[in-house]
């Protein structure tokens, strides 16, 4: 990612000697989960759903040593390309969303400086394992995405991502009959291990369940009624 800083319009515009009161920044949410579970596809489906709700948003993607996911989003036509920044983790993806999230925090700051009025920054983690979690210094709320093709035993394995995320998304529900997964049982087991935290079943490709995820974001961190 670029480390160059943008101008700060709010500071440039201020002519008062009195210090400006501290201002809440844009909400920041995380989207994590195993490789291939559909994190980027979910974000591609969420962007129009959030735009319909009038949400001013930007995205930071994380990849290992490329900017593949950022390029995919920039080419998608769903969001202005300059509203997508890429962070290259260069190591295990969780290191830059949990142990030392400063690169991602700087990317979020850059986006907020470049787009005054920004309401939401979505941080997409690189594909990781079931132990992956987000630092609350980086995000206010986070989603963990698993998929039925990864196996219906994933909820039972009680990985920290499955247990601690604010919202668990079980994606690719359309594949359940093709991979021998009993979807209702998988969802029931996810409910059981999460002790009341929400679980949403989605098919990001068709859009099924995506509105529920957008509603959850709008309620939890954008404070829409």
């Amino acid at each position: 990612m670029t480390q160059s800083r943008h101008d700060w319009p709010s500071l440039v515009a201020s002519r008062s000697d009195a210090p400006a009161p501290p201002r809440a920044s844009a909400a920041r949410i995380g989207v994590g989960g195993p490789v291939g579970s559909g994190k980027t596809a979910l974000i591609e489906a969420l962007i129009p759903a959030l735009h319909r709700r009038g949400v001013d948003l930007a995205v930071v993607t994380n990849d290992l040593v490329t900017k593949e996911d950022a390029e995919r989003l920039r080419r998608s036509g769903l969001i202005a390309p300059e509203r997508v920044l890429a962070v290259e983790a260069g190591a295990c993806p969780h290191t830059v969303i949990r142990e030392d999230p400063t690169l991602n925090m700087a990317a979020g700051d850059d986006l907020e400086a470049a787009f005054p009025g920004l309401e939401l920054v979505i941080f997409e983690s690189g594909g990781d394992n079931l132990a992956s979690t987000f630092s609350l210094d980086l995000v206010d709320w986070w989603i963990f995405v698993i998929d039925v093709a990864g196996g219906d035993d994933i909820p039972r394995k009680k990985g920290p991502g499955v247990l601690k995320s604010d919202l668990l998304v079980v994606n690719k529900t359309d594949l359940a009959p093709h991979v021998g997964v009993d979807l209702p049982r998988m969802l029931a087991e996810a409910d059981a291990v999460r002790g009341g935290r929400p679980v949403v079943a989605t098919n990001a490709r068709s859009g099924a369940g995506v509105e529920d995820v957008a509603d959850a974001i709008a309620h939890a961190v954008l404070f829409r009624e």
């Binding site: 809440a24 920041r28 939890a220």
Partner: peptide, 27 residues
């Protein structure tokens, strides 16, 4: 304790008020 590190969260007070907390990143 797990929620104390959040800058944004929505809570209901014991008296039933819906409170939306959105602190600056340095608070």
């Amino acid at each position: 304790r797990a929620d104390m590190d959040r800058r944004r969260l929505r809570v209901t007070t014991p008296k039933g008020e819906d409170v939306a907390i959105a602190l600056p990143r340095d608070q």
